[in-house]
């Protein structure tokens, strides 16, 4: 897959929170986006996933410009995001959460459900198979029938990743996947991300845990006050003076 985020911008009145940010991903890659709080990272994700309408810019996924496609259309095109604070269908079980996200369900309406029950049942079986696979992959077996609202923070992060996988996403955008997650699970999550990337899924990751992130990504983009201020290999970027200034603050050395 390829991704081109072209000159994305968002302004509220006179305040530009995302200022002509461009990010390119050639081939399925793992790319990190870092920056201090309020740098516009999450807003960028919202713009890319069609959650917010931008003031200019475009996203090109696999050579196809998305223009002003809606959030649903972007998700169906293969771009799925997670959230800083994990979100889930709280009153549905883990299994149902995953099943709901599977695309192209023949039983999309009542008419097919009632008049073509056999084909709907076949598709259900297929989806259920994929769900079991995802549950095994993420080791969510013990909580498969638990309402998602009752999961621990770490389990919710895994479920978010699972939901993104079930949509058949080509690009998964993770918003602080390691926040509030214990070190063992961080290692495990990183491993899952690498495995999925090896299968051809691209990742764009916002994260404050620079240690874990720089081990994972091939490239870092740094945002500060809405602008991209640096990009490149993690080691090079992190030793950049301007980045240290913006990210760690003036007092540090």
């Amino acid at each position: 897959m390829t991704l081109e985020i072209k000159e994305m911008s968002k302004a509220y009145g006179g305040l530009t929170v995302v200022d002509r940010v461009s990010i390119t991903m050639e081939d399925a890659d793992i790319i990190g986006v870092i920056g201090p709080n309020g740098a516009g990272k999450s807003t960028l994700f919202s713009l890319v996933t069609g959650f917010l309408d931008g003031n200019g810019g475009d996203v090109v996924l696999d050579g196809k410009p998305l223009g002003n496609a809606s959030a649903v259309e972007r998700a169906q095109a293969g771009m799925v995001r997670t959230f800083q604070v994990p979100r889930e269908f709280a009153h549905m079980t883990v299994r149902e959460n995953l099943m709901a996200a599977a695309p192209g369900q023949g039983g999309e309406n009542l008419i097919t459900t009632f008049f073509r029950p056999a084909s709907v049942a076949r598709q259900e079986k297929e989806i259920a198979g994929k769900v079991e696979e995802t549950i095994r992959f993420l080791k969510l077996g013990v909580v498969a029938d638990t309402p998602a609202g009752r999961l621990s923070g770490g389990q919710k992060k895994l479920l978010e990743l699972g939901r993104a996988l079930m949509t058949g996403a080509k690009l998964i955008m993770l918003d602080e996947p390691f926040a509030g997650v214990n070190p063992v699970l961080i290692e495990e999550l990183s491993q899952k991300i690498r495995e999925l990337n090896a299968r051809g899924i691209g990742f764009l990751i916002i994260e404050h845990d620079l240690g874990a992130l720089s081990k994972l990504v091939s490239k870092l983009y740094v945002m500060d006050r809405g602008k991209l201020i640096a990009s490149g290999e993690p080691a090079a970027v992190l030793s950049d003076a301007a980045v240290r200034e913006a990210y760690i603050g003036g007092g540090a050395n």
Partner: peptide, 20 residues
């Protein structure tokens, strides 16, 4: 399947949208 999706939308409309 349609019922599951109805419950998903009822539960969290925003998440339903980003899940396609």
């Amino acid at each position: 399947p349609i019922g599951r999706r109805m419950r998903a939308v009822a539960d969290n409309p925003l998440l339903a949208r980003v899940s396609g």
